[in-house]
Every structure is written in C-alpha cells, then in structure tokens.
Amino acid sequence: MEYIVERINDLREVDIEELVQESEKEGYRFVTRLVNEFEDGSNTFNKPGEILFCVKNNEGSVVGIGGINQSPFSQESDVGRLRRFYVLDAVRREGVGTLLLQSIIEHAKQYFKEITVRTDSAKADAFYRACGFSFDDSASETTHILRFG
C-alpha cells in the first residue's frame, strides 16, 4: 500500500469520520476537538507557520491526520506544538505516522525553532523518540521536544 500526504485547507472537505470514531473508542478526544475547533473557528491552522496534513491510502481514504500550531504554551511565536496527531490502528507500524510526522517537521523547520508535544502513551513515547524527539517533561504541558539547529 502506498500513502500520500496532503495539506488540508478546509477540514470540512475531508472525511475523517473513521478517525473520529476510532479515536473516541480508544479514549482519545483530540480528533473530535480538531473537528469542533475547526467548526467554531478557534483553531483552523491558519496562523504563520501552522499547517494541517492528512495521509491518504490508495483508495483516497484518510488514514492519518496531524498538524502544527504556534504553541499556546509559549510566549514565543517560533515554538511549534504538534497537534491532533492520529493514525488509524489498521495502518500503524506501516510508516504512516513517520511519513506524516516527517512532512510536519519539514514544514515546521521553516517557521519554528522547536516542536513540543505531550503524550501519556508509552507507544507514542517510543514513536516520538524514534523520530528524534527528546523526552523532556520539565513543563507540565510537554513531554517531548524536537529542537532544530
């Protein structure tokens, strides 16, 4: 199976219902928050440096989603926050998450000096470390940081 990463300009034009349903069953509400925040305009990934991507399979179905915002936890506009990152269980360990994260990182390097993220999942911890993030829980809202330069 081949996968393609696409930028999402308008979330309403992309079918992510399967991601919403599966993430809810797994106990994660952040994909639902992505939809709600896009609908109410509170987060549409439209500030400088911000972007939202999806990964589609050969059939055109969305199998992963994620983006970067200016960190709401920093006073500095050059600190990025990985947001709403989710990959369907059926395609985990097939490189989808890595492909998505690499696309986000390549974009983020042009705008941010570092990317932060918070996770409480051991699998996500291992994933982020394998992708070059350092474990750093010195701030309550962060568990991993990727610094550029």
Rank of each mutant, 00 (worst) to 15 (best):
R81W: 06
R81H: 07
N58S: 09
Y86Q: 09
P72E: 08
F85T: 10
R93S: 14
L82A: 08
N57T: 01
L82F: 09
E59I: 01
S61N: 11
G80S: 11
A90I: 13
G66N: 10
D89G: 15
N57K: 02
I65M: 09
V87F: 12
P72M: 06
E50L: 01
E76L: 05
R93E: 15
R81N: 10
V63Y: 11
S77A: 07
R84D: 13
R81I: 01
D78E: 15
Y86W: 13
S61T: 01
G66S: 06
Q70D: 01
V87G: 05
V55M: 02
I51W: 05
G66T: 07
G64L: 06
S61M: 03
V87Y: 11
D89Q: 15
V87A: 11
F53L: 06
F73Q: 11
K56P: 00
S77K: 11
G66D: 14
N58K: 11
S71F: 05
E76R: 10
S71K: 06
I65A: 08
V87T: 13
D78W: 15
Y86M: 10
Y86V: 05
G64V: 03
N57C: 03
V63G: 05
F53E: 08
L52A: 03
Q70L: 07
K56G: 02
S71W: 05
P72W: 02
R92H: 02
E76C: 04
R92K: 04
L82S: 07
N58G: 04
R84E: 12
R93P: 08
V62T: 02
S71V: 02
L82N: 04
I68Y: 02
R81Y: 06
G64A: 15
D89H: 15
V87P: 06
I51P: 04
Y86I: 08
I51Q: 07
P72K: 11
I65V: 13
I68T: 09
P72V: 06
S71Y: 04
R92D: 00
A90G: 07
V87M: 06
V91N: 00
V87N: 10
D78K: 15
V91L: 01
V87R: 12
E76M: 03
F73Y: 15
D78T: 14
V79W: 14
V63D: 09
P72A: 04
F53H: 07
G80H: 14
I68F: 09
V55P: 02
N57D: 14
E50Y: 00
K56S: 01
I51K: 13
S77I: 05
I68M: 07
L82C: 06
F85M: 15
G66W: 13
I65K: 04
S77L: 07
K56W: 01
Q70I: 10
G60I: 00
R81A: 03
G60Q: 03
N58Q: 12
F73G: 07
F53T: 01
V55I: 02
A90R: 15
F53S: 03
L88M: 14
E50T: 01
D89L: 15
F85A: 10
L52I: 04
